[in-house]
Design a protein around this nucleic acid. Sequence first.
DNA 1: GCGACAG
DNA 2: ATCTTGTCGC
Length: 227
Amino acid sequence: MDIQALRHQQMMRAKEIIRTDDFEVMPPRLIAGADVGFEQGGDVTRAAIVILEYPSLKPVEFKLARIATQMPYIPGFLSFRETPALLQAWSQLELKPNLLYVDGHGISHPRRLGIASHFGLLVDTPTIGVAKKRLCGEYMPLDAGPDACQPLHHKDEQIGWVWRSKARCNPLFISAGHRISHDTALQWVKNVMAGYRLPEPTRWADAIASRRPAFLRWQQDNRITGL
DNA sequence: GCGACAG
DNA sequence: ATCTTGTCGC
């Protein structure tokens, strides 16, 4: 694989990212979370996308895709590794969300094309990047308390937010993905929190992609009750 | 040259 | 990311 070519592709596609609010529906009626996991020592990539209703935050559909892993993990090039599986899960969905939360960075990326931005561009849908670690940029130390927030900067521009979503937890790195502004991205993460460190769409997608026991139990229960 | 480095 | 038990703190 040619990293130089991928870097060039990122720089070109980053120019297509829309950083202003562009919701088809405001507020969105359907939101979604996307996450990727791995099996068998990394040979198999597993992508989950889950659709939730807003504002109830109840899941109404989910799809899981499994494909052979395409590429190794290289910081800054995550989307080339995870996007193929995500696209497959996306294509199987019967419902399409008005807003999608992606596990990883959006424009808070060295070339402004993290996985949330790249995937948002591919499926032409508003996206928000929700990452658990910094990839690039600098920020002022956060207050100890909950709800502490600082802008994330890189090369003299704001690329996102560092926000403590829950007391005594490490902060989240929130950034615009595609077709959304900084402020709206942060606002819509706050709008879908339910008392945990991660927003609900991300939490559900993670539970599905990683086969969490809590999700397997939920799935059993709802087959019986018919959801 | 050295350190940093989403998932 | 994934492999995994107990443990500390609210």
